[in-house]
């Protein structure tokens, strides 16, 4: 129990940020995010946009897998649906970018709900296999529905335009991608303060008990899949605007594994875990590359010699986190916070 945080109302008890210190930190973080594009190089802006896209998708996967307990290995294919939806809308219909992103989210949500139907009968590994099968079907559609997806050659997407401003470079796209990532995370955090979110958690903890409590499993399981897919669709749409080429090979199966690894490393059933997991999985390989750069003056042709070592180190780091911190990075973060909450009374 922290000092000075006595709650007077239920609303205060449920608030996302319950102390002024938290609000101040959040304000500082937002200010830093706004200032970031004006200070960072093209490379760091590119990485920031990529991390933000991954945060959206990982948050979506955490809703269905971390909070509802339904293992999905179709997140990359769902992103593909969103990306193709944006590519089609942008090239064939010429509709505005924000509308395209919304449409991509809604279409993917519909596809996700469809794919989620087996979740009513199967759970765990069986459901994982069912979602793999769905993603294979989706990949087949991407590669063969020539009139919409242009087959294996894929679709080139023109840059997004919002209010006449062309968002071609990471600098401009940052101002589209980051607010959407903020909104997505905020939406997910709020979701678990509502009946729907609580129902998801009840289903995860024991679905039969949840049904006894009056939660219709059919509706809520499909809703969870649809929500997760909506996030994937928006992330995929942003991906299409970011990379500007969508092909069937853009969203391979290993990309789904990447997202699953992100929620496991970050923390299943934790919004903060989604963010930390996405940052970890995207940035650690890059940080390790900087390590290779440091070794360059010491070792001739360090790039060639150390690159394989780098991938091994990345793998060991993931295993290390799973062994020593099974609750993910979010738990480490909580521990650090607890330390400061109790400081200086207990260290």
């Amino acid at each position: 129990m922290r000092i000075g945080t006595a709650k007077q109302t239920y609303a205060a008890d449920e608030a996302l940020f319950d102390t002024n210190v938290q609000r101040a930190w959040m304000g500082l973080f937002i200010a830093l995010c706004v200032a970031f594009p004006f200070m960072a190089s093209e490379y760091w802006l590119y990485m920031a946009c990529l991390v933000a896209i991954h945060v959206i998708s990982v948050t979506g996967l955490n809703i269905v897998t971390g909070f509802t307990g339904l293992v999905s290995l179709g997140q990359a294919a769902f992103m593909g649906v969103g990306a193709y939806a944006v590519a089609y809308a942008e090239t064939k219909l010429g509709t505005p970018a924000l509308l395209n992103l919304l449409a991509a989210g809604l279409l993917t949500a519909a596809v996700g709900a469809l794919v989620g139907i087996p979740s009513l009968r199967v759970k765990g590994l069986y459901l994982a296999i069912a979602t793999i099968a769905s993603s294979i079907i989706l990949h087949f559609i991407f590669a063969n529905w020539d009139s919409v997806t242009n087959g294996v050659k894929g679709v080139s997407v023109p840059p997004a335009r919002i209010f006449g401003v062309e968002l071609g470079r990471p600098f401009a796209l940052y101002f589209l991608i980051l607010p959407l990532a903020f909104l997505s995370v905020l939406g997910a955090a709020n979701l678990f303060r509502t009946r729907i979110g609580r129902a998801f958690i009840a289903i995860r903890d024991r679905d039969i008990s949840a049904e006894v409590l009056g939660i219709p499993l059919l509706r809520y399981k499909l809703m969870s899949f649809a929500l997760a897919s909506f996030y994937a669709g928006v992330a995929g749409g942003l991906w299409a605007y970011f990379f500007r080429v969508v092909t069937p090979e853009s969203f391979p199966f290993v990309y789904s594994i990447f997202f699953l690894a992100a929620i496991i490393v970050g923390g299943m059933g934790s919004i903060l875990g989604s963010i930390l997991g996405a940052v970890f999985m995207t940035m650690v390989p890059e940080v390790l590359k900087i390590g290779v750069g440091v070794a360059s003056p010491l070792l001739s042709d360090a790039v060639a010699v150390l690159s394989p070592v780098r991938t091994i180190v990345f793998g060991i780091l993931i295993i290390g986190f799973l062994v020593f911190e099974p609750h993910g990075l979010a738990e480490i973060w909580s521990r650090i916070r607890r330390f400061f909450h109790l400081w200086p009374f207990k260290t």
């Binding site: 190089s41 093209e42 490379y43 590119y46 990485m47 990529l50 990471p170 990379f243 853009s250 390989p285 890059e286 590359k289 290779v292 790039v303 690159s307 780098r310 991938t311």
Partner: peptide, 14 residues
Amino acid sequence: DTAYKVDQSVAVFN
């Protein structure tokens, strides 16, 4: 190194 992934190749380019 790009690990033969398009997103990493673009990162390296930038």
